[in-house]
Design a protein around this nucleic acid. Structure first.
Lengths: 230, 230
DNA sequence: AATACATTCAAATGATCAATAGAATGTGTG
DNA sequence: CACACATTCTATTGATCATTTGAATGTATT
């Protein structure tokens, strides 16, 4: 076993950790913000023991970190580059895995017809003040961080709170990321109700990764001054 | 099994493909340029049958493509984003896998002492014409593509061809990438021989990915006009 | 100190995968 | 058409992993 082989085996460990759909799902949820073990287990629909084991594997690989808070253990993404990795991963996957394309096209019907909005365009539109920006993730994730100016209308509450939205303004919805179905669903339902609606092409983690400003409980933070290129 | 789970399972297939050290090594070699099955088997030190199977798995995942040429089958990287993926992968791995850090530090002794040169600095130095740039990869890989102005001095031939190098000019060496040991070895040996020498921080695939100019058999190509940020 | 709770550990089962060797396929050459 | 050659296929073995279950650990509360 040469040095080169040993080194590549180490990198392969990272691949092993990313080789399980449940773990990828947990990572996606963690990219929204930190969470406790049973919080994650609930949103991912897994047993607590199973979730714990997956989290430990990811911790060993350095993808997530854990800290104790009272009787709970709170996990979070270890660093920004993990979100970046997740992003490249899905980008390559989408482009190359025929099954993914097919599945995405079939399920997120007329993806192109929904005309996604780019982050740049969203910034522009928000500045103009002509759009209503809604965060359709669950309340907890909104509280852990969201795009400034966005109001939290989770998909569950959408029907109920639709009356609060101004029918004259375009509504832009965003959620967890490009493969989260919340914003697709929200756009579809709002359009049925007669709203002019589009969805943000990416989600909150991508927004944050790009160094754009975020808010936590209405306390706005400054955008990062510059992007570090390693 | 929900739609989200099925989708993540598809992405996990990508992880599975990247979860084997041998495959990562094959990908690294393919990032240098296209190669036949037994060519790859030889450089990676694997059996032909084994190499073939690994390549087929990667092809299924859309990471590499194959074409027939005479009685040989030539494999190559499917798209640039695969090199990018490999890059992020190793970057995250290096930062987070304690074992990797330790292994790299131990083996590539005094990594910092070798003061790697950034691509930007290299471009500048080349323009000034004050350095000798050497490509220390095997001849085949040099032929498949290299940095303009670089001369091919494979590590094997280094001792023999050292006399051809101008002792007054700084020598900068590059190889397959940040974890290829060729350039480390070359720098070490050249320093022993009294040359002022440094290594390029990355390798040829990273150079090409960044859109910097490359040559094939002394036919220089234009650099890409701009980098697309998704 | 005793209890309740969140998380982790340990063991067991079924499934998937890497690697090897030998046979089979398909392609160019004499 | 037969031969040599590169690659792929098939079958097998040993190893690793996901998941479940029940017990054990560690932390706060009463």
């Amino acid at each position: 076993m040469t040095f080169k082989q040993q080194l590549n085996d180490q990198f392969a460990r990272l691949g092993k950790v990313l080789s399980n759909g449940r773990r990828l799902e947990l990572l996606e949820h963690l990219a929204q913000g930190e969470r406790s073990v049973d919080g994650l287990a609930r949103v991912a629909g897994l047993s607590v023991a199973n979730t714990s084991q997956h989290l430990q594997r990811m911790q060993q690989a350095g993808l997530v970190t854990a800290r104790r808070e009272g009787k709970q253990v709170i996990y979070s993404i270890a660093a920004d580059d993990v979100v970046e990795l997740l992003d490249v991963f899905r980008r390559v996957g989408e482009r190359h895995l025929a099954e993914v394309r097919q599945m995405v096209d079939a399920h997120l019907h007329q993806k192109d017809a929904l005309e996604p909005v780019s982050p740049e365009e969203l910034v522009e539109r928000c500045r103009e003040g002509l759009v209503t920006l809604i965060d359709v993730r669950p309340e907890e994730e909104y509280a852990a961080g969201h795009i400034p100016g966005a109001i939290n209308v989770s998909v569950k509450d959408l029907e109920r709170r639709m009356a609060d939205l101004d029918p004259e303004r375009e509504v832009i919805a965003y959620c967890r990321g490009p493969y989260c179905t919340f914003s697709f669903e929200a756009v579809a339902r709002l359009r049925e109700a007669g709203f002019q609606t589009r969805r943000l092409a990416s989600g909150f983690p991508e927004w944050k990764l790009a160094g754009l400003p975020t808010s936590i409980d209405d306390t706005e933070t400054e955008p990062r001054t510059s992007r570090v290129e390693p």
